[in-house]
């Protein structure tokens, strides 16, 4: 016949069997593996650091906690936490069965435990399996998320960009304008249309035309500040938005610089392509403006420049709101 201690060793590899004095009579094989100082013969409350429930310093207090969850730490450098439950047979023998609880993952590593260190009924191995499987799956998901995030950013960038020039496109421009109008910030909208671009296309071909458009885009980026917006909104039509800049003198100077640099010959396969630009400017200093109205006003000013002989800039003049704007009325600069 097997003794109680033998049965306990078979079923509970982490049990402690103590007497009513608290002296340890036997321990399970796994617990034996963890605790280097000799456990047999030691006092349970000295061999283990019982930290919850608090204030248990003698056997009577310990026995009063029968059936409740006990939390102990090993008195070794790892200070491994264990949880356990105590049952007394009422005749001087007390069994405390311990387990790792949530610390099982660290314990398996710290003590190089194997499946045989756990009772067959213990779910520890299943838990380790799950932790490992789940982290593999989670890793996979994280990698996928990173790739999708990259693809999304790239798709958004492409959706907002004009493929030929790298400037923002019409839909991105609309978003910028909407945001600015809602914010109530003052800003200027500059509508620019190339002059003689059709001649370049017709004479030297589309490749030359593309070269010109790319060069113009480059000039626009060089002449503007980083928080301004330069957009290509049509074949040879561009819109610039100057954030917080409403000074007519400065806007005029920028326009002159733009036109001057665009008028520099642009070389394509040994051919010098000549274009210029007409510009219309609309300044917005009011809150809640309608983006479409602002674009329309910049457009009106642009056509004033065109009618006045091209290669010049014009500020929108509210006085001509609904008229056929006469050439003289727009404030034309050159």
């Amino acid at each position: 016949m097997k003794s109680t201690a033998q049965i306990l060793r078979g079923l509970c590899p982490m049990h402690v069997l103590i007497d009513e004095e608290g002296i340890i009579h036997s321990v399970g094989p796994t617990l034996h593996k963890l605790q280097t100082p000799k456990l047999i013969g030691a006092n349970f409350l000295e061999a283990f650091d019982l930290y919850r429930p608090r204030g248990v310093t003698n056997m009577a207090q310990l026995l009063a906690n029968e059936g409740r969850t006990l939390y102990v730490r090993l008195r070794n450098p790892k200070r491994t936490q264990l949880k356990g439950v105590l049952v007394s047979d009422g005749a001087g023998r007390v069994v405390i069965n311990l387990s790792f609880g949530i610390s099982v993952i660290d314990a398996v590593r710290d003590y190089a435990l194997t499946s045989r260190d756990f009772a067959a009924t213990d779910l520890a191995v299943e838990m380790l399996y799950l932790v490992e499987a789940k982290s593999a799956v989670l890793n996979s998901s994280l990698h996928l998320n990173t790739r999708l995030q990259g693809a999304k950013t790239e798709a958004e960038r492409r959706a907002a960009t004009d493929g030929l020039t790298g400037l923002v496109n019409r839909s991105a421009l609309d978003q910028v304008l909407d945001r600015l109008c809602r914010s109530g910030q003052s800003f200027a909208v500059m509508h620019m249309d190339l002059d003689f671009f059709k001649q370049v296309n017709d004479t030297y071909g589309h490749a030359a035309g593309d070269r010109v458009l790319r060069r113009v885009a480059q000039v626009m980026l060089e002449v503007t500040r980083t928080d301004d917006t330069a957009a290509r909104v049509g074949g040879d039509e561009f819109v610039l938005i100057f954030n917080g800049l409403v000074n007519e003198v400065r806007l005029g100077a920028i326009s002159e610089r733009l036109i001057g640099r665009i008028e520099q010959p642009i070389m394509h396969e040994g051919q010098a392509c000549h274009v210029s630009a007409s510009i219309g400017i609309c300044i917005n200093a009011e809150e809640g403006a309608d983006p479409d109205v602002l674009l329309e006003r910049a457009d009106q000013a642009l056509y004033a420049s065109k009618r006045a002989g091209r290669a010049q800039y014009t500020f929108y003049d509210p006085g001509q709101e609904d008229g056929n704007s006469g050439e003289g009325k727009a404030l034309a600069g050159e």
Partner: peptide, 15 residues
Amino acid sequence: EFELSQPGEQAGEGV
């Protein structure tokens, strides 16, 4: 060999 603990995890000191 099969160790329950994942390889690559740092084994602690002591013990």
